[in-house]
Design a protein around this nucleic acid. Sequence first.
DNA 1: GTGTTTATCGTCAGGCAGACGACTATGATC
DNA 2: GATCATAGTCGTCTGCCTGACGATAAACAC
Lengths: 252, 252
Amino acid sequence: MPYDPSAFPPFAVTVDLVVLTVRRHALCALAVRRGEPPFQGRWALPGGFVRADEDLAQAAARELAEETGLRVHDPSVPAQDNGAHLEQLATYGDPKRDPRMRVVSVAHLALAPDLPAPRAGGDASNARWAPVEELLQQGGYGRDGEPVAPLAFDHAQILADGVERARSKIEYSSLATAFCPPEFTVGELRRVYEAVWGVALDPRNFHRKVTGTPGFLVPTGGTTTRQGGRPAQLFRAGGATLLNPPMLRPEV
Amino acid sequence: MPYDPSAFPPFAVTVDLVVLTVRRHALCALAVRRGEPPFQGRWALPGGFVRADEDLAQAAARELAEETGLRVHDPSVPAQDNGAHLEQLATYGDPKRDPRMRVVSVAHLALAPDLPAPRAGGDASNARWAPVEELLQQGGYGRDGEPVAPLAFDHAQILADGVERARSKIEYSSLATAFCPPEFTVGELRRVYEAVWGVALDPRNFHRKVTGTPGFLVPTGGTTTRQGGRPAQLFRAGGATLLNPPMLRPEV
DNA sequence: GTGTTTATCGTCAGGCAGACGACTATGATC
DNA sequence: GATCATAGTCGTCTGCCTGACGATAAACAC
């Protein structure tokens, strides 16, 4: 059967981004303020239309670069690392999720080291890093006393799914290093786990676990005292991407 | 900005299904033979266009019912269980994945108990259960001596991703019970794990593990000798969906 | 009855995680 | 410069879980 436009309904396809980072011991997500209806003035996840000649991953990488300036980390070059991790999350296609038309959004999850202030791009009049718990709480008031409005569209669901993916994936992979600068200490990595999971971990057992897992961390030889206290060894992420046995998330 | 059709390129959106089951100690997937170009005569995954008023999950469930007659198991009714597990897998949107037009496919993964022969539906001139290793091998000859052609489109990649999802997910969830009839024995469940992972498991340790995990299995009181040997207790899947600690997949 | 098959219970050693003590090496404070 | 606070690093001990595997039980085939 040749191309028959009447055989299928037309869809718009977008990519939305859950960009996570750790700032001030809190898991934060990138939010942009909508400049146009619908949901004008409300916070939303960054995203945009997939172009005609673009792959989904390319579209997500392009949006990420536009919003944050981040380049996607190429895993085939483990030495140079100052890029974000990007992976497909899930696709959201409820017929009524966008009141204007039928939009299917392929959500992606990006993990980034702590960054300078975000730059607003495209149709967003503003952009900020916000703690995910603040973005996900329904109603009430944020830390600054400003009333909290839920995220636009179904973005609260998308964000919740992205956070859950990140929380579970750092259990069994080395993905937590994507939140760290290229060189980091064991303590800094531990604080990433603590921020993402929202728990406190025993520093001694954590140290034993991560340094005892072959291929997870590679010492660079340097040390730092940027966290205060005794100088700590600096590490890079090793080649191992899977953590076996996994890091155990404590019971709540 | 109001609805502006020129602001985005039009896409076709489809759902493709990776339907897995265990037959004769082998992990099998449902394949349909294509009756039209492109890839006419080649095997492909079942799937079809998402309708204008349909959610993605609805479209996947509809396609699954059309191809297999299976209804999707509703997890809110744990007692009645003779349905398939269905979950979204990933979305594939390479601009050239379909030579006719721009098609974005939201792949879904379905796990089903062993079924009678599949029924061909829609535009498929044939349908069959085939061992996944046979569908995934490149070139060569199948068990019946017939030359093996790769799956149409990017369906080999989709199938591989679905199989990998199933293999990893039965580690830490009770999903393996979706391959079993409503009542099953510990040995039957073990053979599911062995088929999906392609390994042999120690029957005694497996029995200890699954019966020792609270909420995983619920004895029905009955016994059966349908597998031969000493009568085995029958179980239903318990309410627990997460397996903690997980079932460990042996090293290869 | 004997052999075969499958199910189920038990035992034992090794590995790993949680709890936590002890020591080290810096900067900050008096 | 002594003291304190902070963070990092090394060890120890106990309990749980797993893998390996012996032993027994209850059916069927002959």
